[in-house]
Nucleic acid binder design. Structure first.
Lengths: 221, 221
DNA sequence: GTCTATATAGAGATAGAC
DNA sequence: GTCTATCTCTATATAGAC
């Protein structure tokens, strides 16, 4: 299932890195990641990648069997970044509102960062051509984070700090209350942003407010 | 600004449709729309478009100056569909919860439909290459709808039916409370959907519930 | 493994007949 | 305007020297 993203299957050659210089692998991956995220898969040529990486095109093909495989490797790296960038978000022993605020800030910081948006842009654009890659990405990134949020809500339920009937739905709601209002303008690089700099705080605060009003234990329902 | 989407600027030739047969224009636009939405801009060739439209490639170029212009014309059509598909959503003289439920159903029906998702997919993918087109699309579709929602909330505020301090933010929140939970799985065509068929109703109901708890006039704060 | 130079295929766009 | 046949450029991928 996630074999398409297994690291050892992504580079070329017989043995494990038979003489390839890791620094060049890294440089190629960096260049590919930057260019793919910025301009999309189809619009980027292997020549550009080689040039930006400071190597020849033949070297690129010595490290990665094809453009497809290089793309897969780049997405694989993004999954690791996802896990590292967003996972340590929740701790239980804390005021709920403070914890939610911190989580929402993390969501804003990571999910709306240019790098993450670039990954999503290219995944959504090329998804139909790489279905197994999409599945791997979802299972490595967004789903574990939703699951962790749901578990956080369940723990808060047990403590009586929240009253969340459907933790999975609530996880999606919290994520999108923060992400949604800023999503289009960041994803599309709008010249006239819908929100100014300080409005980001309003979006975060609005998300926490609405979530608390919806799921605070003393709310009528 | 929106000149890139002006209908008269999108087809080829000197006079207004100097001898071109509208049915073929329509067929080409339909084929282009379908293919672009399904596979993206770069992955679709003018040959494929011509074949699917049942005309020759030269005919395509007789109707549309270039692939770029054909793409722009297709986005233009999508803007009209956006306005027609989502605009008559709100009426004032109605129970607020019922109106919100109806609006949310419309959001689910239109914004999460395969056709709309395809447009968003290709707009986000090719946005960097067509910045003025992105601007036109946003101004013709999402922004007016947000504005209409905000005005609906303001009217409800005046009637005392709601208490919405920031109508613009609330508009985004409502849209994404419905759209968000279903967005990734539909946008990426996940094989194992996160929600089953009946859960869509739960998402809609959950959005209305949360919105009402957040902005009902008798809410504490 | 890494480079320069090249093979080959495919796509956007056009020429010329009707 | 519409078709068939073609031009031309670019991109993926490879051959061969070091």
């Amino acid at each position: 299932m996630s074999s398409a993203l297994a690291p050892e299957a992504l580079t070329t050659g017989p043995g494990p890195s038979a003489g390839r210089r890791p620094e060049k692998t890294e440089a190629i991956l960096d260049a590919a990641g930057h260019l793919f995220r910025e301009h999309g898969y189809g619009a980027v040529s292997m020549d550009q990648i080689a040039r930006e990486a400071g190597v020849s095109k033949a070297t690129v093909y010595a490290h990665f069997e094809s453009k497809d495989r290089l793309f897969a490797a780049m997405i694989h790296g993004a999954c690791r970044a996802y896990a590292e960038g967003l996972m340590p978000a929740a701790t239980e022993m804390e005021d709920v509102r403070a914890a939610l605020t911190r989580i929402c800030r993390e969501i804003e910081r990571f999910l709306l960062a240019p790098k993450t948006l670039g990954i999503y842009r290219v995944i959504m654009a090329e998804g139909p051509r790489f279905p197994e890659l999409v599945q791997s990405f979802i299972e490595a990134g967004p789903l574990p984070f939703r699951k962790m949020l749901a578990e956080f809500f369940e723990a808060a339920n047990r403590r009586g700090a929240l009253k969340v009937p459907n933790p999975q739905l609530a996880a999606h709601q919290l994520v999108w209350l923060v992400r949604g209002p800023l999503y289009l303008e960041r994803m599309l690089n709008l010249k006239q942003p819908l929100w100014d700099e300080q409005s980001v705080d309003e979006v975060v605060a609005g998300a926490v407010d609405m979530f608390m009003k919806g799921y605070a234990p003393d709310a009528r329902d």
